[in-house]
C-alpha cells in the first residue's frame, strides 16, 4: 500500500506571536465509503478512510478529530492556531486499516 502523502500549509506565510493562523492539513487518501462497487467485478470496495487526526503543538494536544468516510477524496482539514511562540506543529493521521502517518511543520513567528 502506498504510503499516505501529506502536506501542511500555514496561512498566511508570515505571522507574529499572538496572531491567529490557519492550518491546512492535506492528505492523499482514497476515502472509500464502503458503498461503492467495482465497475468491472461488481464487488463492493471495502471502506478505507482516515478516522483520526491529531494536531499537536509542541507535543501538547491542540485539536483532535474523528473523521468519517463522508469526507472527500484527498481530504483537506483546516483549523486555527493562535501562535503562542516558536515551536513544532505535529499532525498524526490514522486510517481504518491501521495505516498511520506523522508530519511536522515548524512554527516560526516573525518579530
Amino acid at each position: 500500500m502506498a504510503e499516505m502523502k501529506t502536506l501542511i500549509k500555514i496561512k498566511p506565510k508570515t505571522y507574529a506571536v499572538g496572531e491567529i493562523v490557519k492550518i491546512d492539513f492535506m492528505a492523499m487518501h482514497p476515502m472509500e465509503s464502503g458503498m461503492r462497487k467495482d465497475k468491472d467485478t461488481g464487488a463492493i470496495i471495502p471502506a478505507h478512510y482516515i478516522n483520526e487526526v491529531n494536531f499537536l503543538f509542541n507535543d501538547k494536544l491542540l485539536t483532535k478529530m474523528i473523521t468519517w468516510e463522508s469526507l472527500s477524496v484527498n481530504p483537506v482539514l483546516t483549523i486555527s492556531l493562535k501562535v503562542s511562540g516558536a515551536g513544532t506543529l505535529k499532525v498524526l493521521a490514522k486510517d481504518n486499516k491501521g495505516q498511520s502517518v506523522e508530519s511536522t511543520v515548524a512554527i516560526t513567528p516573525k518579530g
Binding site: 491567529i20 490557519k22 503543538f57 501538547k60 494536544l61 491542540l62 485539536t63 483532535k64 478529530m65 474523528i66 473523521t67 468519517w68 469526507l71 472527500s72 481530504p75 483537506v76 482539514l77 483546516t78 483549523i79 486555527s80 492556531l81 493562535k82 503562542s84
Partner: peptide, 16 residues
C-alpha cells in the same frame, strides 16, 4: 467529522 478544540486554537473554526 467530530472536531475537538482547545483554547490554544484561538478561534473556533473548522473547514473541510
Amino acid at each position: 467529522a467530530n472536531v475537538y478544540l482547545t483554547p490554544a486554537n484561538g478561534e473556533a473554526s473548522f473547514g473541510t
